[in-house]
């Protein structure tokens, strides 16, 4: 999965996407089926992914919407 698809720009990943890729990447590294230069590449991407996750966690802001009939409207509740 990691090998075959062109990796997406980390900055555009949602938290879930980044987290899922990070997990599969750790598993790939632990299975040790890859050439050395590729494991280095995987490791670097893993670093970027975990940074992305941390940034998303640090900047997260609770999103609140209200159901208005059939529509969702953003609301602010302090």
């Amino acid at each position: 999965m990691i090998k075959n698809s062109e990796p997406k720009d980390v900055e555009k990943l949602t938290y879930e996407e980044a987290f899922a890729e990070l997990m599969s990447l750790v598993e790939a590294l632990e299975s040790d089926e890859h050439p050395l230069d590729e494991t280095m590449r995987l490791f670097e991407r893993g670093q970027t992914l975990s940074r992305r996750c941390t940034v998303l966690l640090d900047n997260a802001e609770l999103k609140v919407q209200q159901l208005n009939g059939e529509n969702l409207v953003d609301v602010e509740i302090e």
Partner: peptide
């Protein structure tokens, strides 16, 4: 109730515990 104190209490608790959440209020 969209105007009750209960809503504020819950929103504040959710925000503190996990701001990654999406909350939808059906008043």
């Amino acid at each position: 109730s969209p105007t009750g104190a209960a809503l504020r209490d819950m929103i504040n608790t959710l925000r503190r515990r996990n701001p990654m959440l999406m909350v939808t209020l059906a008043g």
